[in-house]
Design a protein around this nucleic acid. Structure first.
Lengths: 223, 223
DNA sequence: AGTATATTACTGACTCGTCAGTAAGAAATC
DNA sequence: GATTTCTTACTGACGAGTCAGTAATATACT
């Protein structure tokens, strides 16, 4: 009767296209989404395939197995995040305070991007099974950020803008609340304390509070 | 020939005991360990049973299914943590600074206990599948802590010990770095920045830095 | 140009191991 | 021996991984 569905209908789109260059990226992006929602074990490769717009078998043409796909996804996402962070990096010639302010804005944008929270959760969830991935993340993202902040702080101390703190400590004291607030803001429906605040407000609060903590010592009021 | 091994050997210990009162607790404790290591999906009920010193079938005498066991485990652990935190709670009659110092010590001990990190990871990993549990945790642990800290801070501001910050903001700025450092310290092998520090050192750093941030405003040095 | 043939990219139905949940019956206790 | 608590052996569903077959495309030839 009607034309069989498996024959190519004339003048129409083919049922699928050959896109060997695109596939890895498509699969990795879909993997981040699905793994991010369900975790490694509960995520189904069929779902990842569907989300990427292809079939499960195709995934196995590009990745040897589920675990390796997970590893590659984490590495790929981390590397992409680093690249994006460094894209338009420019050494601010202004004061340490200005440089630090600029860093905080960038950092907050990064933490509020759609990829950060899922990746954070996945890495922590699988920290026992993939300690190498956790170390990779800790070194390339956390420690890298710490070094950058510490350098800015150290400069600020030299110039007298900031009080003489250990720059490494001060760096941790900056990133920790930023990361935590980033997580809370990703789940405003759960965390009431940030529910009614905008991202911009939270950033302001973080910045104000932090600068108070590192501002150059002052003479206490007489008392 | 020899006596069959499945018959009770006379005058010896029974192969197992009936302990209907103890079972739920044993199972929940084992569940926290195994879920904490593998996550909900990858954890095997056989492993939980073995860790609890009983067989899988027994679990189903006390919990209807895996998911409900997970829910109960989270609720049970959260409730126990709250109870432990409030056990020897006493309103310090000293200054706000002293009260806050005492709180910080208790809070840090809590964050460094063996139950905190696994629970944190599990709740964040399953936040999509169990938003009710996440809300329960956020309200009963996070928000409760925030209120307590905010009250102390507010008192300190009134008396003039602390500068006039929004107590709610200050509370978040305290718990956030504490939690984050608690997590990092649980995985010192991954996070180099805290690898060489003891728990006590980290606590000192957290306390010193925080008190600088909320200390009463002082007259800046002339310049 | 068009047509035949070879190659590559992809699909989807199948297998096979794993594990949550069940049921039959053994061991402890009353 | 009656009852409760627990074990062991089982079942069935589910999903990772495989592979025979098919659709798309490239190349060779006319």
């Amino acid at each position: 009767m009607s034309s069989p569905s498996h024959s190519t209908p004339q003048g129409q789109e083919p049922r699928w296209r050959r896109l060997p260059e695109e596939r890895p990226r498509q699969i990795l992006n879909a993997a981040l989404e699905v793994f991010g929602e369900h975790g490694l074990a509960a995520a189904r490769l069929d779902d990842i395939a569907k989300r990427a717009g292809l079939s499960k078998g195709t995934i196995y043409l590009y990745f040897p197995n589920k675990e390796e796909l997970f590893r590659e996804m984490v590495r790929h996402t981390v590397v992409r995040q680093i690249e994006e962070s460094e894209r338009d990096f420019e050494v601010t010639s202004g004061s340490a305070t200005e440089t630090l302010t600029a860093f905080m804005r960038r950092y907050w944008t990064f933490l509020r991007s759609s990829q950060f929270a899922p990746l954070f959760r996945l890495i922590h969830a699988e920290i026992h099974n993939f300690p190498d991935l956790a170390r990779f993340y800790a070194e390339e993202v956390i420690a890298r950020g710490h070094r950058l902040v510490a350098a800015i702080i150290a400069r600020g101390i030299e110039v007298g803008e900031f009080r003489p703190v250990d720059p490494a400590v001060a760096a941790r004291m900056l990133t920790a609340p930023f990361v935590m607030h980033g997580l809370w803001c990703t789940h405003r429906d759960c965390f009431a304390s940030v529910a009614k605040k905008t991202d911009a407000q939270i950033l302001d609060e973080l910045m104000q509070f932090y600068f108070h903590a590192i501002q150059a010592d002052a003479v206490p009021r007489t008392g």
